[in-house]
Amino acid sequence: MEYELENSIIDKMQPEFPEAAFTIKKARRVEVKMSSDKLYNFAVRMQKKWNFLHLSAISCVDWLQDNEFELIYHFWNYDEKVLVMAKIRIPREEESHFETISNLWQPAKFFERDIHEMFGVYFDGSEDMERFILTEWHGPPPMRKDFITREYALNFFHYREYDPEWLKDMTAAGEANE
């Protein structure tokens, strides 16, 4: 049977999360969509029961049209060699909130901190939500889709006239292109 391993994983998980929608994307990639309030319980079972010990990453996608953020948790199982992507959607607000899983996985600390910084999603219960990369940034979270880099730059910075003496001479002599 094709995707035997992936189907066995789904058969294990489906009874505990009957509302979650499982799909097999390809070999060793299982996708599951669930409501956001189920995610923490799912993560606990992933780690403690189903042996998905490696949290590979947490990705965030800004769906501006739906006014939602999508969080994708990538879990990897070292024994069965399967990656499960748990996808949830949370409302997109000025500062969205979601619960942390950093008490379960230490790497989640970095990913959550990164998402907070870039998308403005605050993870309640995380020890460290300080800025990491953009320590001197005062604008809105830059990875949001409604943050237009060029527009922000034009509003925030100003063009300055640059007309030094040495360039005037060159322009007059026809050596520099305006």
């Binding site: 990453a57 965030c60 996608v61 800004d62 990538h74 790497p107 970095f110 990164d114």
Partner: peptide, 29 residues
């Protein structure tokens, strides 16, 4: 482990590319 999560919305540009560098764990926590 080096991983990319890519989303396309059917356009000419990627909708989202998330880079998971190996060092995001090693060089931080």
């Amino acid at each position: 482990e080096y991983a990319y999560y890519m989303v396309s919305d059917g356009g000419r540009k990627p909708y989202r590319v998330h880079v998971r560098g190996a060092s995001t764990t090693h060089a931080v926590h």
